[in-house]
């Protein structure tokens, strides 16, 4: 039984010329095309882009939830065909089941996999405690705030100690203060566990704060325009956001989107 802080391993993910085209009554619609991206083992990579640029599609492709139209995705050297092993996913909505307590929700993915939940109980309680939900394990999701619910859904994703974590705008629906809190907690947990993490967001500041590298995505069809390495010391505190280097990165990325006509300067 692994402790929450132990480190089973992190996956190396490699996307080669990945494309996805949807059929529509008006003909094929390319959602993403020509995506090349490498995620080193234990690397935190964010994808920033405007809504509708195909960020979420890209995440579903890496999760193996949708088939590729072109290219290939390799996880630890194996071409994926369906969800890869050791995968944890967090969606924008927390998708907790209302009829289960927080603890039962965290244990859900293990239970669905047909594994005995008793073995994971201690670990689940440990994760909840670390995310400040220690006294809420027997509460129901609808008794909790949005931030607490999303914390629980992160615990659920972390429960089986995944090698690869995918997060699709997990804090997009939260207020600014809760978002800051969760950014810090995510940075801390990533620092401790060093999962390979692909993080989708439309907040440039959030991406810069959290990531090792930020990939900028443009629209129609979505493709990666530029990748910026974020060379800020870790562990990062919220104060890093007031540093000149941080502002420089944010300005650089914003400027890039402005040139594409996606944001106004």
């Amino acid at each position: 039984m692994p402790e929450a802080s132990t480190f089973l391993g992190a996956a190396h993910v490699c996307l080669r010329n990945v494309g996805k085209t949807y059929a529509s009554p008006r003909g094929p619609v390319p959602a993403v095309a020509g995506i090349d991206l490498d995620l080193g083992a234990g690397e935190f990579v964010s994808i920033v882009g405007p809504s509708g640029c195909g960020k979420s599609t890209l995440l579903k492709l890496v999760a193996g939830l949708e088939g590729l139209s072109a290219g290939e995705i390799m996880v630890d050297g194996r071409r994926i065909d369906g969800p890869p092993d050791g995968l944890g996913v967090v969606f924008q909505r927390d998708v907790l089941l209302d009829w289960r307590t927080i603890l039962q929700n965290v244990l859900l993915s293990v239970e669905l996999a047909g594994k005995p939940t008793d073995a994971y109980r201690e670990r689940a309680l440990g994760l909840l405690a670390r995310f400040g939900l220690g006294s809420f394990e027997h509460r129901y999701p609808w008794e909790l705030s949005g931030g607490m619910r999303q914390r629980a859904s992160i615990c659920r994703a972390l429960l089986s100690d995944p090698q690869l974590l995918l997060m699709d705008e997990p804090f997009g629906a939260l207020d600014a203060m809760t978002r800051d809190d969760l950014n810090l907690e995510l940075a801390r947990i990533w620092q401790e566990t060093r999962k390979t993490l692909l993080f989708i967001t439309h907040s440039i500041a959030e991406a810069v704060f959290l990531s090792d590298r930020v990939a900028m995505m443009g629209r129609a069809p979505g493709s990666i325009m530029e990748i910026v390495a974020i060379d800020l010391p870790r562990p990062r505190s919220l104060a890093v956001r007031e540093s000149a280097a941080f502002s420089h990165y944010v300005a650089h990325i914003r400027h890039h989107f402005a040139e594409l006509g996606i944001v106004k300067e």
């Binding site: 369906g82 944890g88 909505r93 998708v95 859900l108 669905l112």
Partner: peptide
């Protein structure tokens, strides 16, 4: 919720487990 079903697929849940539990 479709994302709930995505989660079940990522967990490799059997169709029976998805029916009974979700």
């Amino acid at each position: 919720d479709p994302d709930m079903l995505h989660l079940a697929r990522v967990s490799r849940a059997s169709p029976l487990a998805v029916l009974a539990k979700i």
